[in-house]
Amino acid sequence: MGERPYLYFLLQLLKVIIIFITEIISKSSIKEHMSRKNLFILIVLFPLLHGCVALNEVNQYAATSTAALSKVNDIDYTFSDYCLHDCELQQIRKGEIDTLFKCECEQQAGKADEAIQKIHFTITSYLTAIQRLSDNKGFTYDVSNLTAALQQNPLLKLTDEQIGVYNSAGNFIATASSIFYRKKKLKQYIERADPVFQSLTETFIFLINNRLREQLRIDYETRLANISQMLDNAKNDKGFKQVVVKLYLDERTYYKKHETVINSYVSLLRTVQKGHHELFLQRNNLKDTKIRGLIKRYAQDAKDILASLQK
């Protein structure tokens, strides 16, 4: 059944059908039938429930991480922005209007931004898939047609009350089977993905925290040097000096604003990275309340940082 979940579910459903038929043939009363039914359901469900995992926590982690990663746009500063600012400064420093001046930012800066976007997209796509697979809402089943078909069978003579009970039990069994299968697959995928996930997120953090931050700082310091030169050359022109000081204040605000967002985003990325590694380390103990609490905490940390970004 490893790669064919539907055959396994079919087998479970057939088991239940056999149980129902046996029950009816033995002509037991509804009350007796109900208590035996509970016993049968327990027997059928035991192997399914035994492996149940904290899917909710994995889902919560993946959902918060996806939302956290989407905040990359809040940084609102790209390598192309640097290139355009640099190009603008070159024109300003020429001190003349040159309509033919060209800014070639597509090649290097464009490729650098593409690197950020592609790594971001790859990590997000993986987390979105994990979120979908761990989402119980997407995997509920309806066996009402099946029980209606059973009711039409002249040999079985099922009452409406019995049909109602079988409906609920059938839906429950099908959903529980899916939980068991999804938990098993999630564990396998988290195990397989973690080394690559850690390496990719580390590279992503390095690019944002180290290289994009460096680019922003170089951008700011280059403009600051230009402003200082203007100020030193202004001599006694007080009005012009005031304009230059205003330029400096604007540049400083721009730099600080973007640096703050980079700090928050890097904290988010670190939380997402650690959270996945914790999932990997605890993949066999995901039922444990303490572990569930720990995974929840990562999701909560990410939520808190997200909230601080939205302020």
Partner: peptide
Amino acid sequence: NLIGVTLVF
């Protein structure tokens, strides 16, 4: 720095 980033990619 821009060249370095493209190499990382």
